[in-house]
Nucleic acid binder design. Sequence first.
DNA 1: CTGTCCATGTAAAAAGTTACATGATTTA
DNA 2: TAAATCATGTAACTTTTTACATGGACAG
Lengths: 201, 201
Amino acid sequence: MRPALATPYVILGLLRFGPLSGYGIRAELTRATAGFWSESYGQIYPALRSLLRGGRVRRLGQGGGKRTRRKVTYAITAKGRAALEAWLAQSPRAEQPRNDLLVKLYLSDREFLDKPEAWIRDLLTRETERLERLRRMQAEVPRSQHRHPNVRFWSFALAHGEAQAQATIGWCQRTLGALALLQQARARRLAAAARRKLPFE
Amino acid sequence: MRPALATPYVILGLLRFGPLSGYGIRAELTRATAGFWSESYGQIYPALRSLLRGGRVRRLGQGGGKRTRRKVTYAITAKGRAALEAWLAQSPRAEQPRNDLLVKLYLSDREFLDKPEAWIRDLLTRETERLERLRRMQAEVPRSQHRHPNVRFWSFALAHGEAQAQATIGWCQRTLGALALLQQARARRLAAAARRKLPFE
DNA sequence: CTGTCCATGTAAAAAGTTACATGATTTA
DNA sequence: TAAATCATGTAACTTTTTACATGGACAG
């Protein structure tokens, strides 16, 4: 049997920490996972309806305001908890990564060094910001005990992101250094070629 | 405009290094990228036909044997090279990662520590093997000059995998250590509870 | 009274995997 | 001669994104 679709279970997992709306689920995922998971509304809203039909979540009516009828929050049910436990017990499937930057680097032409250099510089900026954000979040983890019943595990997941970001930052720096050397060597080659063509100029 | 579908361009990129069959494209991708890119036949064969229709590749007839008519190899055309150059010049799109292991860890219940521990142990084994493989490949890179006109860039891409694997290995070890401490603390709590219930047993 | 954020939702397209059918060639 | 590997291909399905429509709440 094929591994179960993750989206509904991730939703159930978040609802275990407290009721949320579809919008809130997306916001919470974006915030708390700091990049190791993402869902689009095109997955969340249909999944919520399917969970509702299956009796795994229930509607809680309006969210915070008095007259606001628009915001619908959902809570997990006992059936939902059971389904979540079963999913959590299954071993995670391996991701098949597709790294656009790496494959372009692998396929790039050495005569055009500036493009890869710019991409790696961008990546360095993004990963540096991500690392800072992860460190701030790690500092907040102990205080968010009430929201997340399992803060140590959250912390482990964030630490993975930290390790990855650090590794990527180091790689960016080393690769930029190597590219700079390649650029210099190319400039020297071009200069030497120019001298041979115009020896007394 | 949306970013172009990567598959046909990755195929063109590989064909720049020499003619390949559909099967060979898959094998070469699996081997050379060591995990940062993957394609299934369900993408490769349709993409090859579409590239053929667009005049970006041409068929080379039988591959190696005498009477073998079954193996069809493809070569890149001038039009294909131009399309590839245009794609390579576009900045790579950011991947949106979905890490099944991390999201399960984040959502897991602290009362069941053994499952996550087993998953992380598996990951540690896989990443250790991957790191060894990447190091062997890095050692081979200088000798494969003839196949890949751009070995330095290939080496950079492999180095990224190495850095990631090392970071993941370190995280696995630290997390396994932390989980072991949690297990011990839990065992002590359970033992203390048992003593309180059966004080003179 | 305008722009931004909050919020829900759908339809269609795109992207990707899986399972299967088929058969040649090589190796043990 | 059996098993493994090489090899091509398709159809169905699943998964995911994107673009769009819609409108309330709120801040400046």
